[in-house]
Amino acid sequence: METEQENCFVFQNLQETAMSFDDVFSKIISFMRLDPRSTFRLMVGTDSQVHPDKTLFITGIVIQREGKGAWACIKKMSLKRKMHSLHERISYETALTEEVVSLFTNEKKIQLADIVLPFIYSGASFVMEGHLDIGAGKRNKTREYVQEMVARIQSAGFEPVIKPDAFVASSYANKYTK
């Protein structure tokens, strides 16, 4: 049964539009069941782009079967103003990622883990990552926000990943912000 929070989200990908979170979760379950002996990474990340009349945020969800493909979708959110403050934008991106991560309740996390559990001794695994569009490099303007945003994703129960490895935020979601 969908909660009110889950109903307010609309996801899409190249094949489908107007997917609810329950639809997305079902797709993830089906994808994992195709080959439960695999190494899976469930990744959620958000990127943004300031446009002349708005700031567009894209949150991506990717379930990757390492070396054997992936299934992905996005959620768009538009703010009707230019968000110029880097800290505000990074914080908002992290909040949107946290919002989607929160839809993966403990019950849903257990359902996903249970798919691979019978096969962990033969190499199957499952991790959940929150991809942040920030980097710790000396030349990266977002480096001063790394500790704050990483702590937020950790507290949500996902493993934080930053640039250059945060490809769901910095590459997948990014291509839909243009």
Rank of each mutant, 00 (worst) to 15 (best):
Lys75Ala: 15
Phe104Met: 08
Arg89Ile: 03
Val168Asp: 03
Asn140Gln: 12
Lys178Gly: 09
Gly123Val: 09
Gly123Ser: 07
Cys73Thr: 13
Tyr172Arg: 07
Pro160Trp: 01
Arg41Trp: 03
Asn7Thr: 10
Ile61Trp: 01
Ser170Ala: 13
Arg139Pro: 00
Val101Phe: 06
Glu16Arg: 13
Gln64Asn: 09
Asp35Gln: 13
Ser102Arg: 12
Val101Tyr: 03
Asn106Trp: 02
Lys138Ala: 15
Gln5Gly: 00
Ala166Glu: 02
Phe104Val: 08
Glu107His: 07
Gln12Met: 08
Arg89Ala: 11
Phe158Gly: 09
Ile153Pro: 08
Ile58Tyr: 05
Ile162Arg: 01
Glu98Ser: 12
Ile58Trp: 01
Val146Gly: 01
Ser78His: 00
Arg152Asn: 04
Leu14Glu: 14
Thr17Pro: 00
Thr142Arg: 07
Ile74Thr: 11
Phe167Asn: 07
Ala18Arg: 12
Arg89Gln: 12
Phe31Glu: 04
Ala156Cys: 13
Lys27Gly: 06
Arg143Glu: 01
Arg143Tyr: 00
Val127His: 07
Phe25His: 01
Val100Ser: 10
Phe21Glu: 06
Gly69Ser: 05
Glu129Gly: 08
Arg143Met: 05
Tyr121Val: 06
Ile134Trp: 05
Lys27His: 11
Val150Arg: 10
His131Pro: 08
Val10Asp: 07
Pro36Ala: 08
Phe167Ala: 03
Val168Ile: 13
Lys68Gly: 01
Asp47Ser: 12
Phe167Thr: 12
Arg89Asp: 09
Trp71Ala: 03
Met77Trp: 10
His87Val: 09
Ala156Thr: 05
Ile153Gly: 02
Gln15Trp: 04
